[in-house]
Write a protein that binds this DNA or RNA. Structure first.
Lengths: 159, 159
DNA sequence: TTCCGTGCAAATGGTTTGCAATCAT
DNA sequence: ATGATTGCAAACCATTTGCACGGAA
């Protein structure tokens, strides 16, 4: 299922520990090992993967990095509010998060309602449409997420 | 082209009691007053409005139509699986439902993350993009929902 | 030293489910 | 009559929160 889309030339605009530290300080908050661990996890796995809070917790445990589940939740919310992570609303599971990047204002999902298989794709047309709608109502666009519900070839066959 | 519906007589695109009855019978299920009431509520309010399970329950109570909350949940799931309702995933509140119609393959939402105000808009460009993506991966498109996260004029001002 | 952040456990709130009674067919 | 459906309440589960301790600044 690897979409070959994630071609090269990705200039890391992703905050590392130092960037994260100053961002937090600007808000009167602190850099903690837990926060570093959560962000580092997302950086490690790259932009393509969506994780639930539970999955983040499990992966950290597996990596010998102890972070309580409650803190995972708090940190996911924090990093999202800072714009470092993006929250997704996929039809299937509950809340999921992925690393935010500039590319993500224009990064969409197609989910098979039969088996849950998810493909990602990009489309500037969608972003353009979102901006048009925002302008029309005087809104300031933050990001737009298109979720295409569909049947994958295998599931389409069975129905 | 999902939901081919009734061939021949093109009367109501929206199944009324009779249509609902036969659809249910095809699945070995029954037409009950509760199911009629829930569907009728959505038909009454039209396509534009999204209701949570709790809101459906409240509205039915207000209309003197007693349906337990548990049954509301069961019925919403049932009607969605039949394609009569469409489940939305708006960032703000939990699950919401609205009447499904062909128009909804191209019917999108812009949500203010500050106050929850929601505007709807249409864009054929989005549907086109979704179809392109579906074709690319061999998927069969069911519908596509674009959620634009944004700040409404009022909330934008305060930040 | 100051308080922000963490871990734990308890609380929460939306959604689901077991079961006996009820109703559509 | 038969089995699907309902209502109720208890069960569930993901997420949030109160509180005391520990650690960044």
């Amino acid at each position: 299922m690897p979409a070959p889309s994630n071609a090269g030339t990705v200039v890391a605009a992703v905050p590392t520990s130092e960037g994260l530290r100053s961002s937090l300080h600007d808000r009167g908050q602190r850099l903690t090992p837990q926060r570093q661990r959560v962000l580092a996890l997302f950086e490690r796995i790259g932009e393509g993967t969506h994780l639930s809070a539970e999955e983040v917790h499990q992966r950290l445990l597996r990596a010998q990095e102890r972070v309580s589940l409650a803190t995972v939740y708090r940190t996911l919310r924090l990093l999202s509010s800072m714009g470092l992570l993006q929250e997704l609303e996929l039809p299937e599971g509950g809340r999921r998060f992925e690393l935010a990047g500039d590319a993500h204002r224009d990064h969409h999902h197609m989910v098979c309602v039969g088996c849950g298989r998810t493909e990602e794709f990009e489309s500037t047309a969608v972003l353009t449409a979102g901006e048009a709608a925002a302008g029309l109502h005087g809104f300031r666009l933050l990001d737009c997420v298109l979720t295409v519900r569909a049947l994958c070839p295998r599931c389409a066959e069975r129905s």
